[in-house]
Amino acid sequence: MIGNDIVDLAAAGKECNWQRHGYLKKVFTSREQAYISNYREPGSMVWLLWSMKESAYKIFVQENFRRLLAPLKFQCRLGTGSDLNFSGEVFFEKKSYKTSSRISAYKISTRAYSEISSKFLISNDFEFSERDYLFRNEEMSNNFIYDLSRRINKPAGEFSIKKDTLNIPYLFYRGNRFNSSISFSHHGRYGSYAAELF
């Protein structure tokens, strides 16, 4: 399965003061806090780790059909990284999820995978043209379906997306469930989709 998360760094800076007293302790393990304080831009590391946790959590919800707020239980380890790309792993109880993240000056984007496979993967980050939140869900679905239809050469009009009560998106083709795992994320100006077709 696949999970993703995108962070608009400008929006994150405005919305959330991670430096407030007690904040980091509620979210990050001591290993993660060391990653943050040792990184040249601690703020970017905060959101990189956050997006790793969130991406892994998106898989957790698809696997377990329940939600929870447990950032400390999704524990990150960073693997190799450059200034632009980080690979890592998130551990949750007995499970682990591989992650890959991209960092730019404006955004951080992560995908998590429950297993490494050669399944067909499709993912993209984009800037919303819609400003209204209500229309953004539609823009997200449309961007994804359009991309998918071109990649697998099937008409876009035959696809649709429905979300369940846990907000998990499901792909339908001609009214039938299309065997896949999909994850959508939006924050600030940016949207991101990731899908794995079985």
Binding site: A12, C16, R67, L69, P71
Partner: peptide
Amino acid sequence: FVKDLKINSANLIDIIL
């Protein structure tokens, strides 16, 4: 908080604090 009020998860921690 998330589904109805669209509060992002980073701010849920603020609410707890």
